Simulated assay, not measured.
Amino acid sequence: MTFQTFHDYPDLASRALAGSVIWASDEAFAEKENLITPGDAEFDPGAFGHKGKVYDGWETRRRRGAEIGGFDSAIIRLGIPGEIHGITVDTSWFTGNFPPQIAVWGICVHELHTGEEMAQIPDAEWFPLVPLFDARGDHKHDFDVSERRRVSHVRLDMIPDGGITRLRVHGIPRPKLAFLTGTIDLAAAEYGGRVIDCSNRFYSSPDNILGLGRSRNMGEGWENARRRSGDNDYVTVQLAGEGVIRRVEMDTSYFLHNAPDEAELIGIAADGTETTVIPRARVLPDTRHYYAVEGAASGPFTSVRLNVFPDGGLSRLRIFGELTENGFETLRSVY
């Protein structure tokens, strides 16, 4: 299945990619950090605390008196700076307390700033990602984003107050070029690698295999459905840029009874030529597999395709190597 919508790009704000909600004007009823929690918001109709109804989202107090005329905001530092292609603002479960209007802004800063420092940046320096819109309660609002500037932080405004459960910021990672020198994981999301095709994502997203660190359970990997036909499953990864592969790690940790039986890795050059990087070989469950790559099998390649036979999941895929000069030049052209 080739990807068609902005939802198929990584969520650059996700906590799974080290996104962080660094500031909010108010979080009297529900914490700002809930905005970027992986997965859909949950709701327990019987859950009440000392402050009122417990929500799996961000909820502010009702504005009164001198606060009337203002509005609430939250600032999110993206885990990976990038080029934004789409945003989802989710008000699920907020029915009588959702904000009437919402807007989303972006900015790119090159140094680390505290939330308080980011909140002091003048409005004129933020550019619109999602212009002010009339919001609906208990609804996922999807917006295509045409602004192609690099974004490091987003500001979520709700006017005047209320609750929002989740914010998703989907796009193409654009890390600093200085971080792409030497031997790196060419497939890692933090360096710009991304899944561009996948045969099946029934149980969990293939994006997980490019995530930070090691998985903590099977749910943090890619798991496909049980295949009943005679072909096989696969996932195709666009590398951070054209690169030469030195070694590969394929990790089936936590996949005890549903790892692939066999696997192979195919390298794909800029002109579409395919070369076998790792020949089809046996795969063990709950195991980190390492492969050294030499000669023509090392590329250069712009993407790789992992074929698993006949099906089965894995936790992580690491493609270690170096960008070519052409890879660097291509990346410079989009910054």
Rank of each mutant, 00 (worst) to 15 (best):
T2I: 15
T5V: 02
F6V: 06
Y9M: 07
Y9T: 07
P10R: 03
L12D: 00
S14K: 05
S14R: 05
L17R: 12
W23A: 09
A24S: 14
D26R: 08
D26G: 08
E27L: 11
E27P: 06
A30L: 04
E31P: 01
I36A: 02
T37S: 14
D40C: 08
P45A: 11
G49D: 14
G49I: 11
H50G: 03
K51M: 12
G52W: 11
Y55N: 05
W58R: 04
E59N: 00
T60W: 05
T60S: 07
R61M: 13
R64N: 01
I68S: 01
S73G: 07
A74C: 06
I76K: 09
R77M: 02
G79N: 01
G82A: 03
G82Q: 01
E83Q: 10
H85T: 10
T88M: 11
S92V: 09
W93S: 10
F94G: 08
N97F: 15
N97K: 13
Q101N: 05
A103F: 02
A103I: 05
V104K: 03
V104E: 10
W105L: 14
W105I: 06
I107G: 02
V109M: 03
E111Y: 08
L112E: 15
T114L: 10
G115Y: 04
M118I: 08
M118G: 04
D123I: 04
D123Y: 04
A124K: 04
A124P: 05
A124G: 01
L129K: 07
V130F: 11
V130Y: 00
F133I: 10
F133A: 12
D134V: 13
G137H: 01
G137L: 12
D138G: 08
H139Y: 14
F143I: 03
R148T: 12
R149I: 00
L156G: 10
M158D: 02
H170P: 09
H170F: 09
P173N: 03
K176Q: 09
T181L: 11
G182N: 03
D185Y: 08
D185T: 13
A187M: 04
E190N: 08
E190M: 09
V195L: 13
S199G: 13
N200K: 05
D207R: 13
N208A: 07
G211A: 06
G213W: 08
S215A: 15
R216G: 15
E220T: 01
G221R: 04
W222D: 11
N224W: 00
A225L: 09
A225M: 03
R226H: 09
R228C: 00
G230E: 13
D231A: 13
D231L: 06
Y234E: 04
V235A: 03
T236I: 05
A240S: 15
E242K: 03
V244C: 11
R247T: 12
V248W: 07
D251N: 13
T252I: 11
Y254L: 01
F255H: 02
I268W: 14
A270H: 01
T273F: 00
T276P: 00
P279T: 12
P279L: 04
R282A: 14
V283D: 00
D286W: 07
T287E: 12
Y290S: 15
G295S: 11
A297M: 06
A297I: 06
S298W: 08
S298A: 15
P300E: 07
P300R: 04
S303K: 11
R305C: 10
R318C: 11
F320L: 15
L323Q: 00
E329R: 13
R332Q: 14
R332N: 07
V334I: 15
V334F: 10
Y335P: 01
Y335R: 12
Y335Q: 09
